[in-house]
Design a protein around this nucleic acid. Structure first.
Lengths: 340, 340
DNA sequence: CACCGAAATACAATCGATTGTATTCGTGAA
DNA sequence: TTCACGAATACAATCGATTGTATTTCGGTG
């Protein structure tokens, strides 16, 4: 019952050597066609299936890359994963998908497991909790190629594929300003993550350009869950002056805020215009539909994978070890939540 | 640079045998505490990291289970995955997540790869295209424990964890009837999949109970993508009589239909009441909010994993090989799309 | 001081496939 | 018929860790 057929079983059945069987199965020119045919036939007959543990161990290559994302259920990340899988499969690589659920200790465990399984490389978007890089440095010292996408850390010599969060934040905010908003709230995320710092910087730059004073009480930091959005909305409403615009660093928190506003009878966009970030499918469907920033997830996945496979192919010489950062454009999608 | 430290390196550095190092790292009682301490220290110093390829090969156990879902981005499946991961990690297992994207050939490849990597078991929700079971039979003959969740096939001796789709279909349809609908359309999926056959059967049963004649032109089969929903809505509108209710076998197609109706000026729920299936987050947010059937995804994941791990623990004797099917209840969530 | 038994450690085979080297085979040329 | 040479195949080491068995070590006892 149990399929434990090995190349030795095939070899024995045909009274030949296992090395010949191995070469035949790998279509080596050192084996005659006649023998290959016999071996293939017998392999099928016995239900042979290569043991990749043994094969990979011997070759010390797994043709597998690991991918770590905060959550697979986020539309942006699943788009990235699609791009990664497409590129990787075309190149003959398998992909192991893991989610950190925004938890640092899970991220550490995953890295550990991937390294122990000797993946050839890793693509990584760090969790919100990641403020300590021991596990990443270990991977680097280890010699395992990896690179960041979307959410990155400052680690020397590690490449990144990012989107232009500064520009995205700027566009979102300027859009609100051009629609007449004067007092614009902003939901930001953990400041450990550059993406949130950059989105906030874009926000400030837009205010500055249009000579609107920056007020720190309008900027609220959280984990950007739906609930954080509701809380944030409440806080904004409690301010002594009227807030007429909101740029949220993700769609989920924006939606949390919209729900709160709806409950409180605050009209969107009439009383407060809102722009989100990420273009989750839900943002197109909610009422009013949510203006947001679209990020080219699929493309990020493709590019990141291409770069990683390149690095796996030619390990960087210690000298030419400059970190390259690829930055992609995002684009504003105008919908109803921001139309004054 | 490269971390190639093996137990032999540690052994050599300490002038002891590799077997002792191995036992120490596995905390075997056969090694003295003093030696363990020395070994641990040296292992840390050298940045040792166990090679699971070698370890798993030798032990012929990987402590890994594979999970195959149609799409990770569907809320239902990502809930199931959360349940699986929680249960698996608690039991010391790793999880490899794979998506078939509803394609049979991808499903085949994934099964092949998982088997080649010698996962200890597989949890599987088949693709819409899966009408041929060769790859699954191979896995069975192979002796690799696996079980179906949500979407299953009729394969002897393979367990399943399902939800009560018949009941769900019945509840959805009866709900529409009780809200006054007389002509109820139904979007169904590929008839190869029992879940869709069962939802349809529930639909028919509800009609029958309430003495509403069944009309085949009201039942539309598709892949239930958003676009299929719009097409279906169009078809329903083109009928010579007025359709005043719709039960869609998933939320996505229901939403496609809602968008089409909105465009055409057909009011939901006034002109046509709608019930979906799956309780995607988007269904709570769309306007009007979508009545739907909630499936306990997380729980399905937990139960399926528990059963699988049991089967891995005690391989079923060939005799007591009856397939067990666990069926969980679904529940109707009433929202605005069905309020007449 | 020799000896016993348990504790600690060493030896060696093994998991399954790969791969460099050595050997055998077969055919054509001399 | 023999030799050479390329083609085909066999031999054997190896990847890194595990594990059953054998050996050594050591404290205690008579």
């Amino acid at each position: 019952m149990e399929n434990k057929t090995t190349i030795h079983d095939i070899a024995k059945a045909l009274k030949i050597d296992a090395s010949t069987v191995s070469r035949a199965l790998n279509n080596s020119p050192r084996v005659s066609q006649k023998t290959k045919d016999r071996i293939m036939a017998k392999a099928n007959e016995l239900g042979y299936q290569r043991n990749l543990l043994a094969s990979n161990l011997r070759k010390s290559v797994t043709n597998t890359i690991g991918v770590i994302v905060p959550r697979i259920s986020r539309h942006f990340f699943s788009s990235v994963i699609s791009g990664i899988e497409e590129t990787a499969y075309d190149a003959g690589y398998n992909v192991i998908i893991c989610q950190s659920l925004e938890q640092l200790d899970r991220e550490r465990n995953i890295v550990e497991t991937l390294l122990a399984n000797r993946v050839d490389g890793v693509l990584l978007s760090v969790s919100m909790e990641t403020d300590e890089y021991g596990h990443l440095l270990k991977m680097k010292n280890n010699g395992t190629p990896f690179l960041f996408f979307d959410r990155h850390c400052e680690i020397e010599g590690v490449n990144s594929v990012l989107i232009d969060d500064f520009q995205g934040g700027f566009d979102a905010t300027e859009h609100l300003i051009l629609n007449g908003c004067k007092n614009i709230g902003h939901f930001s995320g953990p400041q450990e993550l550059a993406i949130y710092r950059n989105r906030t910087a874009g926000y400030r730059k837009a205010l500055e350009k249009h000579k609107i004073p920056y007020r720190s009480e309008l900027v609220l930091r959280s984990s950007l869950m739906e609930n954080d959005g509701s809380e944030g909305a409440k806080t904004l409403l409690s301010l002594p002056y009227k807030v007429d615009g909101l740029f949220s660093a993700n769609d989920i928190a924006a939606i949390g805020a919209m729900k709160y506003f709806k409950n409180e009878g605050v009209k969107v966009p009439e009383n407060i215009a809102i722009v989100g970030f990420s273009n989750e499918p839900i943002s197109a469907v909610i009422d009013p539909s949510l203006t947001t920033i679209d990020q080219p997830g699929f493309q990020i996945g493709q590019i990141a994978t291409t770069l990683l496979l390149e690095e796996i192919g030619n390990p960087p010489s210690a000298k030419a070890n400059m970190a390259k950062t690829t930055i992609l454009k995002s684009s504003l999608i105008e919908r109803d939540s921001s139309k004054k």
